[in-house]
């Protein structure tokens, strides 16, 4: 279980050494591009059998078995206040590690790994939705689209979001 299992489409093995470059696993949720710091990513999964957990917060989609470890699945759409996925779209998951526990972030699509210069990260625009602002570390301007860098720790902390 390590980053190596991800298909590194960007071929950024060399860039890894540089401190000026941050690597992100890109993902699309409801048309928006997000980036998750690659060092926190453990795995990328296809559609999984998820066990529902009654009484859990609405963002928790359930639990799944990842090679003998129990992983809590988080529905990123619900977490970001987006509409539910329509139809039988086959969702993908990005497994991240936080505080010794594994979480599977259910997203629409998983894209390539991007290496981006760290100093090009821009602050969240003040007009950004406050819910999103709280889980975003900043924005990268890519060619033709914007990438929201996800703060995994904040994304997994719903208590704050619910209180707000």
């Amino acid at each position: 279980m390590s980053g190596k299992e991800i298909v590194l489409s960007g071929g950024n093995a060399l860039a890894h050494a540089s401190h000026d470059v941050a690597e992100y696993v890109t993902t699309i949720v409801d048309g928006q591009l997000f980036g998750i710091p690659v060092l926190q990513v453990q795995d990328v999964l296809g559609p999984q059998r998820v066990t529902r957990i009654p009484l859990a917060p609405k963002e928790v989609a359930g639990a799944l078995n990842l090679r003998g470890r129990i992983v809590t699945a988080i529905d990123v759409r619900t977490r970001l206040g987006l509409v539910k996925r329509q139809g039988d779209h086959r969702a993908m998951s990005i497994v991240v590690e936080h505080g010794g526990e594994l979480y599977s972030l259910i997203v629409d699509e998983v894209g390539e790994v991007l290496s981006l210069p760290a100093d090009r990260l821009e602050a969240n625009p003040p007009t950004l939705d406050s819910g999103w602002r709280s889980v975003s570390l900043g924005i990268h301007r890519l060619e033709g689209r914007l990438l929201v860098v996800v703060d995994v720790a904040r994304l997994l902390d719903f208590t704050r979001a619910e209180a707000a």
Binding site: P54, L55, A56, A63, G99, E101, L156, F158
Partner: peptide, 11 residues
């Protein structure tokens, strides 16, 4: 259970 779910006393 995951820390997110510890408050559910049923499990």
């Amino acid at each position: 259970v995951a820390p997110l779910l510890r408050h559910i006393s049923m499990f």
